[in-house]
Amino acid sequence: MARVFIYPATSLILSDLVARFGHKPLGTALSVRERIQTAGLDSPPLQMTPDDAKKGLKWAAVEVPSGVRGRMSLFGPLIDQAEAAVLVSNPDFAFGCMGCARTDELVEYLVRRKDIPVLELNYPLDEEEGILFVRKVRDFLRGLESASPEKAS
């Protein structure tokens, strides 16, 4: 089983696909839900505070806007743990939206810079592309399975 970073990190479809093929999805759907559902008055609705933007300094310099750094405080630790990644470019809002093009650029770069298997896909625009999309994700995840030292032994 590999820890697979998904981006957009809020994508339930990617998260589900990764889990179905026996890997651990590294996304933010659950952690964002937890944040939203946790009672607190600090900073609704996401319960993120200025400290989160400060934590993001590990991945982005101080001059990078706080919104990017706040997002990086969520995605950065996931990228650090990732053993593989699936990145989807130009996704539809309904697929999972991270809301900031600059964050997208940085996240994708940090993932590419890591020496891990990465599957990069364009968001499918029709049914045919959708089938191909799922097939590519499936093949990639199966490939991880066979390459996994745990499985190999």
Binding site: A60, A61, E63, V64, P65, V68, R102, E105, L106, Y109
Partner: peptide, 13 residues
Amino acid sequence: CFRCAEAAIVRNE
């Protein structure tokens, strides 16, 4: 330029 987010990311990297 000061305050450009994309450039700040690139500069750092």
